[in-house]
Design a protein around this nucleic acid. Structure first.
Lengths: 136, 136
DNA sequence: ATAAGAGCTAGAGCCCGCTCTAGCTCAAGC
DNA sequence: GCTTGAGCTAGAGCGGGCTCTAGCTCTTAT
C-alpha cells in the first residue's frame, strides 16, 4: 500500500514537518520513493519503520543514535552485532529511566497522600495548623 | 546545618549553575539566606526542597510547573487543593510516561530477542539469508 | 478553467533547560 | 601580604528537536 505524508503523519502521530525532518536527518533505512510529481510515497514497511522511530524517540533515544542504527541497517547484513549493541544500550537507558520515574512517582505519591489526608482533616475540623505538620 | 552552594550541588547532583538558575527562575519556596559576604547558605530544609525539585525535573515536570507549585507554597496555607491538583496532574504524566516507556521497551526487547536468535543461528550456520526473515 | 488543498525545498526561528563567560569580591592557608 | 579557590551577577551562548515561513508545484473537485 502507498501512503501520502499526511496519512503517515496522522497514523503515527508525528507531524509532516517532523517526518521530513527525520528524513533529512537520515533516520530512514532506505530512500523514500517519490511519485512523478515529486511527492513522498510511503510503503507499509516505511510506516513500520517510522513507527519504530517514533517509539525510540518517545523512549528518549536521541536522533543521533537512531541515525546510527539506521546507518547500520542501510549498510545491509553483516553488522547485526552492532545493531544489537545499540538496541541493548537503549534498553538499559529505558530501564534506568523507568527506575527514575518510579522513584519520583513514589515521592510524589507520598506527598499526594499527605495533602489528601490534610485536606480531609481540614474539611473535618475547618482549621489549618500552618506549618505544624511539614510537607510543603 | 548550613551548606554552601558547592556542597548542595555535590549532594543533589545539580550543577551550581543550575542551582542559581533555579533560584532565578523562582523555583524556591522561600528566599535563600546569604552570609555576610553575599554567598548563599542553604539549610537542610532548602536541600530537601532542592531534592524535590530535582525529582520533579527528572520525571519531566517543566520548570514552569514547578514554579507554579513553589508559588503556591510561598503563598502559605490555604491553597492546598491547588497544590494537590498540580501534584496529581504530574502523577498522571509520570504514569503515562511509564506506560510509553514500557510499550517502547517491549518493542525493543522483541527486536533484541530477534537479533540474538539470528546471531545464534548465524554462528551456527555461518550464513545470512539477507532480508529473508525481516526485522531490520 | 479555476480555486482549493496537499506537497515540495531551503532555510530561518523557537523553546527549553541549562551552561559558560567576564569581571569582580571574599575567605583562608602559606 | 599574596595566592588560590569558591562564590557572586548579568547576560550571552548552546544543543536538541522540532516548527514555521516563503514561494512554488501538482492534483482534484466543481
Amino acid at each position: 500500500m502507498a501512503h501520502g505524508i499526511g496519512d503517515v503523519a496522522a497514523r503515527t502521530g508525528l507531524s509532516v514537518h517532523a517526518l521530513r525532518f527525520y528524513e533529512r536527518e537520515g533516520l530512514f533505512a532506505g530512500p523514500i520513493v517519490r511519485d512523478p510529481g515529486g511527492r513522498r510515497v510511503y510503503s507499509d514497511d516505511d510506516i513500520e519503520w517510522v513507527e519504530l522511530c517514533a517509539r525510540l524517540r518517545e523512549t528518549g533515544m536521541p536522533i543521533d543514535a537512531i541515525r546510527k542504527y539506521a546507518d547500520l541497517v542501510r549498510e545491509g547484513p553483516g553488522n547485526e552485532p552492532d545493531r544489537l549493541a545499540l538496541l541493548q544500550a537503549h534498553q538499559e537507558r529505558i530501564e534506568a529511566q523507568m527506575e527514575a520515574l518510579s522513584v519520583g512517582l513514589s515521592m510524589i505519591s507520598y506527598k499526594v497522600r499527605v495533602y489528601e489526608k490534610r485536606l480531609a482533616e481540614g474539611t473535618a475540623s475547618d482549621l489549618w495548623t500552618g506549618r505544624a505538620a511539614s510537607g510543603d
